[in-house]
Design a protein around this nucleic acid. Structure first.
Length: 999
RNA sequence: GGGCAUAUAUGUCAAUUGGUAGACAGCCUCCCUUACAAGGAGGAAGUUGGAGGUUCGAGUCCUUCUAUGCCCACCA
């Protein structure tokens, strides 16, 4: 058979065909697993924003999750990788509002709440799939049949149940407090949604306030960055120890522009060294002033509207002015009154809205809050007692997590938006609130239908913090009335709400209400999830909250491990940002280098540290993909009669691994298995050549290393091992070693004649029957290749599937037994774990000696500038053992060193005009170069080597002469050094002898 | 103001519990050898940010300094 493949791998085609087949074949669903007793493995994707598009951080995280999932799936786990998106309240509302403005020149208020949310849903259906399609392109093996959206009915139900439960326990309350307010979005924000922004050209204004006292001229100067807020001042504060102002404490000030009188108070909060040591106090517009105001019982005078303009209480002249216009006016007025003492430059940090970057106002507003104490304690207790969650990398995340929890404050959960989960609270005519799961329930409580639902919606995170279990079917309905059974004892003790009798007493018994639908089964099967993979910036926003909610509501942890990826930085080492324009779009990279190259490049960079993006890195793996492609191409060109068969390299196939006796149902029922079940015997590896035993050993060792690395989330280690195994061991050495054995073309040296492609084809057609040995050799290399592709599959799914499909013998018989029913695909093949008994250290060290010999000869050739076409003679003087190894592999040595003869002896007997070298084991080699040798160059070369050994040897002899080292270091270390010193000594002596021969 | 991290070859990054510093890219030499020039063979390149300390032995542990980055925090 002739398999014509192009000489370069084009990722496009593979990317287009395989994903569809995987998805349609149901390979991504846990149901594909036929093993009832399979262990489960589950990951829920951190839901990207519905408005979002894929960025490098996603690509990295998704790759990591997919690598983990694909490997576990191949290992026979029942895997679920669940996709979904987040409704992203603020940003989505912003986006649709903007669109509405552009297309219809209307505001949300113009069209009303219902029409607006309708529009958002439309928008969601139309554009919300962008990121989902990009995720498909990434090749991630998520179960689309379980795709979730934070506003799905069942997730909404969960949100309402959680809200009501917390309310009934007294953990959710409504109250007026000072909050972060975005005047642009006109909503409250939690502390976590506020960012700091440096303002280098900030100003500090010094305002003089006249003091009412006997001395009419007396003023007190305050420094402020926000003069407009002076309109809401209700005091001036000084430090009680401040001598400058001691006599003023208790006096009154006539506040300019307002006609109001405010007191001077003393408070420790005031820093005497900053500004003038006197601080204007605006309790309604500054968090510190708010606190101070409470301490001194000051009035809270709100002078601003919610859109950032001043209100009537700011005074008639200011009413309706934008805050920045008002600022100018206040300053102008002070100037005019001669009360503006001075203006100073002042670098400062401004709080801005995370979404729209508008400067935040702090103001007093009535909002819904969640008391976090109870849940916080659950999480902290688990951290203390079991060090949960386990973060990778552990530092600094574990500590940051704990510190944050310890200082946790109440969470503002209401948002003044229309897009989101509307707060399940209703008010009657008198303003009395009824919190319930539905309007009907509320009406029942209120005894009237005349109710108005709270206008606000919940913080987006109030739905995402339930993500680990709400996506698996938890709605909170099933366990209503039986909380105590599921909840951890601790939370039960603490929740006063658990004794609250709900108006639902007619509920049937808990057991009967337990919904055992498929969704609940998912919860039972897949929760807790195994690992959460996410970025650093949402440890507080999301990770910690998920822990708390999960402990609280289902009494178990949401996930086992937390893997925090590093940040992908721009090529310039800075953060990627739209404004800087230094971002790299993963889709562009996919187009340029292919998805697989991008994936493995990302995984290979994932150490947990931040890293700067390099196109060259992806290019390296693009080349790697091409290498894999061509290696496969070569194997296929020489594959007639062969097939992938683990038994051919001494590995038990999946059928052998499956429980003995029990013939897998699949092999009986499915004919597709037949073709592959020719897997007969597992051969005895010891009968194979050193080269074969070596590659089998390397393969198994690599498999073990890859598995170990992935278990520890050491993705870069896994990639490194795979890269070097495949490229160095398999391609550079193994293929070259067995080339003649598996190829029909005969000895490399024999035919130099040109062969036209026609003739070649003709030759291929009437190939003589292959010898059995050749077929076995071909099967071995195909099998090693096939195993390698499996190991690579989690990282490079498209390429490996594309190639695997072409391998003879690659069929569902190679699947993990759990999937023997499924259509042939590498993604269900049995993931190699590495058979320790096939690791052959002897073969590895023997091969290392052979490679050293070959490399040494090549080195001499290169340095002596011997033409590639010149075939030289190798003379080697070695001990008996080495001679045997060399002679057994003579053909390969000759070929790879481009030599015509290999003369083995106990001692060298060569012409003086020879280039010489010594191997680590003392083997002396020489290449006679009559006439060709440049004695000067050879002397230099030898001296060079002697010098290098000398430096190394000196270091070691020094170590050995140190008594402390010899006495205290482990004996094996000492012995190793001694051994190396012996080697160096022998080599140096031989080289010196050779050098002297030239003098 | 606190907390944490990072500093290793020209660049981007590795280095399991302390045990003779590695990869990739780039660079130099040779080769378009019949899987692959997105390739092959060979090679050069590092006082591991500075200074101390612990240890037989330190890139790795401790102290300190310098630079950079991130997180948290109410300095008007």
């Amino acid at each position: 058979m002739t398999m014509e493949l192009s000489t370069q791998y084009d990722p496009k085609e593979a990317e287009e065909t395989h994903y569809k087949r995987w998805e349609e074949g149901g390979f991504f669903t846990p149901e594909i697993n036929q093993n009832e007793n399979a262990e489960k493995y589950s990951i829920v994707i951190p839901p990207p924003n519905v408005t979002g598009s894929l960025h490098m951080g996603h690509a990295l995280q998704h790759t990591i999750m997919d690598v983990l999932t694909r490997r576990k799936r191949m290992l026979g786990y029942r895997t679920l990788f669940l996709p979904g998106i987040d409704h992203a309240g603020i940003s989505t509302q912003l986006m649709v509002t903007r669109q509405l403005k552009e297309q219809e020149n209307k505001t949300p208020q113009d069209i009303g709440r219902e029409a607006f949310t309708e529009k958002v849903w439309e928008w969601k259906h139309k554009y919300g799939n962008t990121i989902l399609n990009q995720m498909r392109r990434e090749g991630i093996s998520v179960d689309w049949s379980r795709e979730r959206f934070t506003m799905d009915d069942s997730l909404s139900k969960a949100v309402r149940n959680v809200f009501v439960t917390l309310y009934e326990e007294g953990a959710i309350y409504r109250g007026a407090r000072i909050v972060n307010w975005c005047p642009n979005d006109e909503t409250v924000l939690s502390d976590l949604e506020v960012e700091d922004k440096e303002k280098k050209d900030g100003k500090l204004y010094f305002l003089k306030y006249p003091v009412r006292s006997d001395d009419q001229e007396r003023t007190i100067t305050v420094a402020t960055t926000r003069p407009e807020t002076m309109l809401g001042d209700t005091a001036v504060a000084v430090n009680p120890n401040d001598e400058r102002y001691k006599d003023l404490v208790g006096k009154m000030i006539s506040l300019p522009l307002t006609g109001r009188e405010i007191p001077i108070v003393a408070d420790e909060y005031v820093d005497m060294d900053f500004g003038t040591g006197a601080v204007k106090i605006t309790p309604a517009h500054d968090p510190n002033d708010y606190e101070l105001g409470l301490r001194h019982d000051l009035p809270q005078l709100s002078v601003m509207n919610l859109n950032g303009t001043m209100n009537a209480d700011a005074g008639a002249e200011f009413d309706g002015l934008d805050r920045y216009v008002a600022r100018k006016k206040v300053l102008a007025d002070f100037e005019e009154l001669g009360l503006l003492e001075k203006t100073a430059d002042h670098e400062m940090i401004l709080p801005v809205c995370e979404r729209c970057k508008t400067v935040i106002e702090t103001l007093i507003s009535e909002q819904w809050w969640v008391k976090m104490d109870g849940m916080r304690d659950l999480a902290l207790e688990l951290k203390r007692s079991e060090d949960y969650p386990r973060f990778t990398p552990q530092n600094p995340h574990a500590k940051v997590y704990t510190d944050w929890l310890e200082n946790l404050r109440d969470w503002t959960i209401s948002r003044q938006l229309w897009w989101g989960h509307q707060i399940p609270a209703w008010y009657d005519k008198d303003g009395k609130v009824y919190v319930a799961r539905s309007r009907e329930e509320a009406a029942e409580q209120a005894g009237t239908e005349d109710l108005r639902q709270d206008d606000d919606v919940l913080d987006t995170w109030f739905s995402s913090w339930l993500w680990s279990f709400s996506t698996l079917g938890w709605t909170g309905d099933a366990k209503r009335g039986q909380e105590s059974e599921v909840q951890s004892p601790k939370s039960e003790d603490e929740s006063p709400g658990s004794s609250v009798q709900r108006p639902k007493s007619e509920d049937p018994s808990p057991k009967e209400t337990l919904d055992v639908g498929p969704e609940t089964r998912d919860l039972q099967t897949f929760h807790p999830t195994n690992v959460l993979v996410t970025a650093r910036d949402i440890i507080f926003l999301w990770v910690s909250r998920m822990v708390m909610s999960s402990l609280k509501f289902i009494g178990e942890r949401p996930f086992d491990d937390v893997y925090i990826t590093g940040t992908v930085l721009a090529p310039d080492g800075q953060r990627m940002s739209k404004t800087k324009g230094n971002g790299v779009d993963p889709i562009d990279v996919f187009d340029q280098f292919g998805v697989d190259a991008t994936r493995i490049a990302l995984a290979g960079s994932s150490t947990g540290m931040d890293f700067a993006w390099r196109d060259e890195k992806v290019e390296t793996y693009r080349n790697f993909a091409n290498k894999i492609w061509n290696a496969t191409r070569f194997c296929l060109m020489n594959s007639e009669g062969a097939k992938a068969d683990p038994g051919s390299i001494g590995m038990a196939g999946s059928e052998q691994k499956a429980e003995s006796g029990e013939p897998s149902e699949a092999s009986v029922s499915s004919p597709t298995v037949r073709e592959g079940s020719g897997t007969a015997a597992v051969i005895d590896v010891s009968a194979l050549s050193i080269a074969d035993r070596w590659i089998i050993s390397r393969l198994n060792k690599t498999a073990r290393e890859v598995n170990q690395a992935l278990d520890k989330y050491a993705f870069h280690v896994a990639v490194d091992k795979l890269y070097h195994f495949f490229w160095d061991d398999f391609c550079d050495w193994y293929i070259e070693l067995v080339k003649d054995e598996i190829s029909d073309r005969g000895e490399w040296a024999s035919d130099k004649g040109q062969v036209t492609s026609d003739e070649k084809e003709a030759q291929d057609k009437d190939q003589k029957p292959k010898s059995e040995d050749q077929i076995l050799a071909r099967s071995r290399i195909i099998t090693v290749l096939e195993q390698s592709l499996r190991l690579l599959h989690p990282f490079m799914p498209y390429l490996t599937e594309e190639l695997w499909q072409k391998l003879p013998g690659a069929n569902s018989g190679l699947h993990n037994p759990a999937y023997s029913n499924a259509d042939r695909t590498i993604m269900l093949a049995d993931f190699p774990t590495g058979d320790e008994s096939l690791i052959d250290e002897k073969a590895e060290s023997d091969m290392a000696t052979i490679f050293e010999l070959i490399t040494k000869v090549r080195n001499i050739r290169a340095e002596m500038q011997i033409k590639p076409s010149d075939k030289i003679a190798i003379h080697a003087a070695a001990d008996e053992k080495s001679r045997r190894i060399f002679s057994e592999n003579e053909a390969q040595i000759l070929k790879l060193a481009r030599a015509a003869e290999l003369n083995l002896s106990e001692s060298l007997n060569v012409p003086n005009a020879s280039a010489k070298g010594v191997l680590n084991n003392g083997t002396e080699i020489a290449i006679p170069l009559e006439g060709l040798i440049d004695f000067e160059k050879e002397r230099e070369r030898l001296q060079n080597q002697i010098d290098k050994l000398e430096i190394e040897g000196e270091k070691m002899r020094k170590q050995l002469s140190n008594e402390n080292f010899v006495n205290k270091a482990p004996a094996e270390k000492v012995e190793a050094v001694k051994e190396r010193v012996r080697e160096i000594k022998i080599q140096t002596e031989l080289l010196t002898k050779n050098l002297e021969a030239f003098r």
